[in-house]
């Protein structure tokens, strides 16, 4: 187990190094530098600059130093906890990131608190009797919800719940401070899609376990149905969904972009979107590091859960 963790963290550092280097290389073109200048000074401003002034501007921003030395400086700064400054927002990236991550963490926690019990329960109920009426209803609904793109769900939910019924606000900018009501629409948009997905996976796993020979053994031992499900089927059936749930963390990180931008929720996803549009390299770099960390750690958690739940792997590893 310790070896696995060390290995995964090593991998994480390696991926972080490679992706940040790649990003640096991409942003190290004249084109990008000029784009940054345009974003900051305006198209007209840049056009009026002569070559020397432009060089001077680059000098001031530290953008014309050699690529490697800038990268090494950046790595050194990151090691010390300094993620640089956002050109667009003109504030320390760490401050911005902390604020935005916190917002997204609120969204994500609410998401997981609702998603996990709902999808596991529905999945297990559907898989208990494969092909039964309950299974058919749940499966059809799950297929439908996972078939609708999130942007469509977002529009539909806004039209019905906000514009139509007026239950919740249409946008989640939270200008007047934090509001749970404003969280409802982004949360629902994410839940509707992902619950369908996890339900289908749980159902498949449960259905497979229910047809396993050891379930027959348990039934023919004379155990009651509930005892068979709770005592024998559940742990085996939940191994796969549980590992999957941790991977949803990674899924969530990319899908919050659509949802947060649509509902104007100022979280990590929206920050990423704006930084990408603006070419705010320091923010993008920091966001990449966070994304890689989330991806690797969620996989690590997924592996650890698998090992803990499955004695066969535990013995071998």
């Amino acid at each position: 187990m310790a070896r696995l963790i060390a290995k995964r963290l090593g991998q994480m550092l390696l991926i972080m190094g490679v992706t940040s280097l790649l990003l640096f290389a991409i942003f190290d073109t004249d084109q990008f530098r000029r784009q940054i200048a345009v974003s900051e000074l305006g198209g007209f401003g840049v056009a009026t600059l002569n070559a020397a002034d432009y060089e001077g501007w680059l000098e001031k921003k530290g953008l014309n130093e050699p690529f490697l030395s800038r990268y090494v400086t950046w790595v050194g700064d990151v090691m010390q906890g300094d993620l640089g400054r956002s050109i667009e927002k003109n504030m320390a990236v760490s401050t911005l990131l902390a604020d935005r991550l916190q917002r997204t963490a609120i969204l994500a926690s609410c998401f997981f608190v609702l998603m996990v019990p709902i999808s596991l329960t529905l999945g297990v109920l559907a898989g208990m009797r494969e092909g039964g009426r309950l299974d058919r209803v749940i499966s059809i609904v799950a297929v439908v919800t996972t078939s609708i793109p999130q942007i469509a769900t977002a529009v539909l939910l806004t039209v019905f719940l906000s514009l139509g019924l007026g239950w919740v606000p249409a946008k989640s900018a939270m200008v007047g401070g934090f509001s749970f009501r404003e969280l409802v629409l982004p949360l629902l948009t994410l839940l509707i899609y992902d619950i369908g997905y996890v339900v289908r996976m749980t159902r498949a796993s449960m259905a497979e376990v229910m047809s396993a020979n050891y379930i027959r053994t348990a039934v023919l031992k004379g155990l009651a149905g509930s005892h068979v499900i709770m005592g024998h089927a559940l742990r085996n059936a939940l191994i796969v969904p549980f590992t999957l749930i941790f991977l949803q963390l990674n899924w969530l990180l990319s899908h919050v972009v659509v949802v947060e931008v649509f509902f104007q929720y100022s979280g990590f996803g929206r920050m990423l979107y704006e930084a990408a549009m603006f070419g705010d390299i320091a923010v993008l770099q920091a966001a990449t590091l966070v994304a890689v960390a989330v991806a690797v750690i969620s996989q690590l958690l997924s592996d650890i859960t698998y090992i803990l739940l499955n004695p066969r792997v535990g013995a071998a590893g």
Partner: peptide, 8 residues
Amino acid sequence: MASLNPTM
């Protein structure tokens, strides 16, 4: 093997 519960 298949008749025994692998996680119990």
